[in-house]
Design a protein around this nucleic acid. Structure first.
Length: 305
DNA sequence: ACCCAGGCGATTG
DNA sequence: CAATCGCATGGG
């Protein structure tokens, strides 16, 4: 099946799937292959035409929702294009869109992402899917869906230990059990404001403790990538580098000194994380999350050199 | 061998 | 509050 992008809708599939927000897509012979909500999907873009096929007959509205084609990207880019560096980041990967990721999978994926790198994270997610997901045959090849919360909550610990989770294993189990026992938790997050949802996840509130393995950064990724909180500005080591080298003028001198000397793999304290995140949200506005994603991708592709 | 990667949690002062 | 540290894993 195929569809044309309407005139004026900018979208670049390669940039979108390459930028590091997703862990389940790979490219082979011009086609992108991924597993989304139990469907194997292959998709490619030629100019304005998107061609796709899936193991379950998904329709184009599914992809339009997944790839956030409902976002007015031109408008968004014009609101965040506020300085020369951001302009370069945009030109480096115009057409990059955030993806509306499945909620549960996104949460576990980013718990698995901490203190790691994309290549390793992808392997971890693939192993979890292979151990606990459903096998799907598509065009003669084997794929595995991402397992549900109950598949992981009371899973065989030995099988979980095959997934190279390392110290993240307790978090994955604990969060799975939490989601199984509190069916309304994820829905309730979706209805909260960004700040409330962030606090609930990373800090905890009157009605519960925060989720194990979910801190300031993982919470922001989760909120941005699957709960439609486009103002979230996840700050990892790369984004921190961008901020300290290109946006230090937005901060007080004292704070600047702290977070630039606090270099390397050192962790930001929660309070420092909040200062950075709030400052960048104030600067870029309601679409700070888009700004973050362009900056992140550009920095990783050598934009800071 | 050493350093780094889409950080978090626990412990101390 | 703040500053440290350990945490598993895999690749360069």
């Amino acid at each position: 099946m195929e569809f044309e992008l309407p005139i004026g809708v900018i979208f670049n599939l390669d940039h979108t799937l390459n930028c590091g927000q997703l862990f389940r897509w790979y490219k082979k012979k011009g086609w992108w292959y991924g597993v989304v909500e139990g469907s194997v999907i292959k998709v490619k873009q030629v100019d304005r035409k998107l061609t796709f096929k899936s193991s379950t007959n998904i329709d184009q509205s599914f992809l339009k929702n997944y790839f956030r084609l409902d976002d007015n990207l031109s408008d968004i880019l014009s609101t965040i294009n506020l300085d020369p560096f951001m302009n370069k980041a945009i030109n480096h990967s115009t057409g990059l869109r955030l993806v509306r990721q499945p909620v549960w999978e996104c949460l576990i994926s980013y718990i698995c992402s901490s203190f790691s790198n994309i290549r390793t994270i992808k392997k971890r997610i693939a192993k979890i899917s292979m151990e606990f997901g459903k096998r799907i045959i598509f065009e003669g090849d084997e794929y595995y869906s991402f397992p549900g919360p109950d598949d992981l909550a009371n899973s065989d610990i030995k099988k979980l230990m095959n997934c190279s989770l390392g110290f993240r294993i307790d978090s994955v189990r604990s969060v799975s059990q939490k989601i199984v026992s509190d069916k309304t938790f994820l829905d309730s997050l979706m209805k909260m404001t960004y700040e409330k949802a962030w606090d609930t996840l990373a800090i905890g509130n009157e009605s519960g403790k925060p989720l194990r393995g979910v801190g300031p950064k993982v919470a922001d990724c989760f909120l941005l990538f699957s709960l439609d909180k486009l103002e979230a500005f996840p700050t990892d080591v790369w984004v921190k580098r961008v901020v300290s080298s290109k946006y230090s003028h937005l901060f007080h001198g004292g704070f600047n000194r702290k977070f630039s000397t606090n270099s390397g793999s050192n962790t930001l304290s929660t309070i420092d994380y909040k200062i950075i995140s709030k400052t960048m949200r104030n600067y870029f506005g309601e679409y700070a999350g888009y700004a973050q994603e362009y900056l992140y991708f550009y920095a990783r592709d050598g934009g800071l050199i």
